[in-house]
């Protein structure tokens, strides 16, 4: 298998590639457990976080990951930038490129912008979420978290609950988790299910998805959907699709409960569950840093021996 040139999605990935990256992430997490949380692996490299859509946690996570490995980091975000003055996103990228950067971590509001960027830029492009399409490092950190709990994913049932149609998290997990042996179920209201989600079984029946699940992933419900008319009633959503302790009882008793954040407590998830013993929300954040260190390391330096 060839070296990674960009991380846009999991197109063309195989199991060995995914396992290798997750293995590197485990080594990276050991670094995070040291009193001195820094290694020189990326000394001399410059990583740019280029966020055309607001995000706090993903941006911080990538920036910390790069700094833990001694890379220099510059950040660009849409608010207060030249984009607000009418500059095209291509010109923004070309201007950044002129500053001799090595990697571009890009968050984009529309699917495909990271592909356009990869065509225009000489450096490495890491997709930090493009529109509804893909969020590969989120899926990697979810897989990492699940492996922690379950040991392996072969034959495991993972239920993803919520606004599936508009979720890049669901799309990327549906691509990655089956590579590792999992069966993915995706459940949500009929109007928020896509026509197809490669890698997953779709259902509008929450209980069917939760039944005997080994792990449960709850997605953030974006309130904008109400304005678009694709979700008629928040009350109806809460009644039928909120993951509650009672509903979660259909899953395995120790099934880990994941959420990519930020959470709307008592909308898509019962507030108390988020703080309960099954919640892995904080674990996911820590995993995110390790996984992003591994991604940057693989892309910039190559696979560890």
């Amino acid at each position: 298998m060839g070296a990674l040139t960009h991380l846009l999605d999991f197109e063309g990935w195989d199991r060995a590639q995914a396992e290798n990256l997750l293995e590197t992430a485990r080594l990276m997490e050991e670094v995070l457990e040291r009193p001195m949380k820094k290694v020189p692996a990326l000394k001399g490299f410059t990583v740019a976080t280029v966020f055309f859509e607001p995000s706090t946690r993903t941006k911080i996570s990538f920036e910390l990951a790069a700094r833990r490995m001694s890379a220099d980091v510059v950040g660009f975000s849409k608010a207060g930038s030249s984009l607000a003055k009418g500059e095209s996103f291509k010109d923004t990228l070309l201007t950044l490129q002129a500053m001799a950067l090595d990697a571009y971590v890009i968050r984009a509001p529309v699917a495909g912008m990271v592909h356009q960027a990869a065509r225009w830029l000489r450096g490495v492009v890491v997709n930090a979420g493009d529109g509804r399409r893909a969020h590969p490092t989120q899926a990697l950190l979810d897989a990492y978290t699940l492996l922690d709990d379950l040991g392996g994913l072969d034959g495991k049932k993972v239920a993803i609950i919520g606004d599936i149609a508009n979720s890049r998290v669901a799309r990327s997990n549906a691509q990655l988790l089956p590579l590792l042996g999992a069966t993915v179920w995706a459940a949500g209201p009929a109007g928020l299910l896509p026509e197809d989600l490669p890698g997953a079984r779709l259902t509008a029946d929450l209980d069917e998805a939760l039944e005997d699940a080994d792990a449960v992933m709850v997605l953030r419900l974006q309130r904008e959907r109400m304005g678009e008319g694709t979700l008629p009633s928040l009350r109806e959503y809460v009644a039928d699709y909120q993951v509650t302790a009672k509903r979660l009882a259909r899953a395995k008793p120790t099934a880990p409960l994941l959420h990519p954040g930020p959470m709307n407590r008592d909308v898509e998830i019962e507030g108390a569950l988020a703080d309960g013993p099954q919640s892995r929300v904080e674990r996911q954040v820590r995993a995110g840093e390790a996984v992003r260190m591994a991604v940057l390391y693989h892309l910039l330096v190559g696979r560890a021996a």
Binding site: G112, G131, E195, D196, P198
Partner: peptide, 11 residues
């Protein structure tokens, strides 16, 4: 075009 490909591509 709406359909399975649009769903897959997130457009």
């Amino acid at each position: 075009n709406d359909g399975r490909l649009a769903a897959e591509l997130g457009l």
